[in-house]
Design a protein around this nucleic acid. Structure first.
Lengths: 341, 341
DNA sequence: TTGTAGGCGTTATCAT
DNA sequence: ATGATAACGCCTACAA
């Protein structure tokens, strides 16, 4: 293996030598300092440009104590929901001159903490965590770290933490109410694994809608998947195996709904003919399922952007509201229809 | 807005003071230097731990000239294909102690170049670019930058560049041949926008299969979408408007196929009854479409991992093969069937 | 208008 | 086995 060591990048001193000035003059010239002679500034900038000089953000960060860098922790960037949130964060960050570190936590709290520590060592000025699985432990890390952290749709409660969350309860109530208004009375909730806050909240919204319509809450109509198609498929199978199957199903998310949809089809039933189905998230494929999926839209990019805006405030030493609740929007497509009589 | 300035993080000197030793002793202790007294090492490490000390990777990078950082440029992280590739990169990078900068280029060459420069300033040790739209310009940047760059599925040709690419031609030949072997003779290619290398290569594979089967190449059976469902839908509409519609369609990717599938359904036709459909990528939803989509699988995570492995070699001063061609795999599901007689 | 000197938090090379 | 000292590349008083 031929080890050809790369040449060190040019430093401010190299430019100083080329321009026959001191390195501080170069530094000022590159900042467009008004103190300097206009002509020297231009001359130095030209030399820097032509020699391909790139200032070291590392060195600058060391002296200014500002790295213009944030860290983003995600469960998995391969998740379509997550990747859109990150897209929003990245865009906002970039617009403000911040670079973005990205790391997967794989929903492993230990790893999540490790990643946050790694970010801290790199002296990020702020951190965004999506769907955090870490609970109150965070508070401790927070106080140790002295770095502003914003959570998006965090799955454990925690006070004193800044976060952006979707209005799970109200959105779920609306979705369920939509089914009720279509004449459905046996409505199931196909959830995620228990214990996560968003699952709990969506279940709450579901129950609230039933209450408001004076419909009974039937425990056998609540099943749990895993937030992915496979889990949705299985959970739906359970529902179809019931002595009396539901005619409407509100799913925890679109991924679950995708699995549920297939299960319904494989059992020779039709959506929405036999069963109405509602998802959550409005992922890109929702409008391309057969039939197109009625679902609850989460403004993912916008949520990322909002998180970044909170973070920017926090990073500039300001304070901010503890939690932003973002309203969701019911998107009615063709997987929900009036109950067949 | 209350400006509460954050306390500076502890430095090695602070620990030195706490432990009543010199800062160089602390530095050695934290590296587990064998030179030091075992007990001092443990004592210092304990103090560092208890005081929540985090070494500054910034300062370390400045002196060692190694940042343990790479940059990843993507067209958009919101793209499911891209996000899985990035997932693979991140995993491999993390395993080797590298942190990952992520930036969107939005397929804008200017922006792509800007991002790469920003990475250079942050002194990343290497860069991965997915689906680069930048052509030969790269070569120039490359030589200026002195940073190893690996491309994944780059859309413009360029020599002297390291890249990981899918075996487009052969995979497309196989996919088309699959349709031929099912008895189809009027087979269409529903492509991406012209000019991109992967589109050209997939078209080439398509033509090669026709040739090998001595089927005529009919220009009217080649249409172009935009790599997204909307474009696929439109392009398929064009095909269905033909005096004699094709009975098999090989699509540039799954996203296009998704749109094509809907178009077929909306025209009252059936897949695969009336038309067989094949996609490319094997995105997660491919097995959940109705019917499940026959497609060509790209090992996305693995491609990211491979790119990272090349980069690691390059970064350690080694050399590497210029280009890795990754074989793809035809996944036969239910959207392709024998031609109806 | 420009140059000199000191420091940011590490690692590394000398001494001791 | 430990301590002083000098870099690394930049910014910023303070001097000239």
């Amino acid at each position: 293996m031929a080890h050809k060591s790369r040449p060190k990048p040019l430093s401010i001193k190299d430019i100083a030598r080329l321009a026959d000035v001191s390195h501080s003059t170069v530094s000022r010239a590159l900042c467009n300092s008004p103190l300097l002679n206009r002509r020297t500034v231009e001359r130095i900038q030209r030399i820097a440009r032509e020699s391909g000089y790139r200032a070291s953000a590392i060195a600058r960060g060391l002296v200014t104590q500002k790295t213009k860098t944030i860290g983003v922790v995600v469960t998995s960037i391969a998740d379509p929901f997550v990747s859109e949130v990150v897209s929003g964060i990245e865009q906002a960050a970039n617009d403000h001159g911040y670079a973005v570190f990205l790391a997967n936590s794989y929903a492993d709290p230990d790893r999540e903490v490790k990643v946050v520590h790694s970010f801290a060592e790199r002296r990020v000025e702020g951190i965004v965590v999506t769907a955090s699985r870490v609970g109150t432990t965070y508070l401790q890390i927070l106080s140790e770290l002295q770095v502003p952290i914003v959570l998006i749709n965090n799955q454990r409660r925690g006070q004193f933490v800044h976060s952006v969350m979707i209005e799970n309860v109200e959105a779920s109530r609306q979705a369920t109410h939509h089914l009720i208004s279509l004449g459905h009375t046996r409505i199931a909730y196909l959830g995620d694994r228990c214990g996560y806050q968003s699952d709990t909240e969506r279940l709450t919204g579901y129950r609230r809608a039933l209450e408001q319509a004076a419909l009974p809450f039937l425990p056998e109509l609540v099943v749990h998947g895993d937030g992915k198609p496979a889990g949705g498929e299985q959970a739906m199978a359970t529902l179809l195996g019931l002595p009396q199957a539901p005619t409407g199903v509100f799913c925890y998310n679109d991924m679950s709904a995708l699995g549920a949809l297939r299960c319904v089809h494989e059992n020779g039933l039709r959506v929405p003919g036999d069963i109405s189905l509602i998802g959550f998230d409005d992922l890109f494929f929702a409008s391309y399922t057969q039939p197109p999926l009625t679902t609850v839209r989460q403004p993912r990019q916008r949520m990322g952007l909002l998180a970044m805006e909170i973070l920017l405030k926090l990073m500039s030493g300001g304070d901010s509201a503890d939690t932003i609740k973002v309203p969701a929007e019911l998107i009615v497509r063709e997987s929900s229809a009036p109950r067949r009589i």
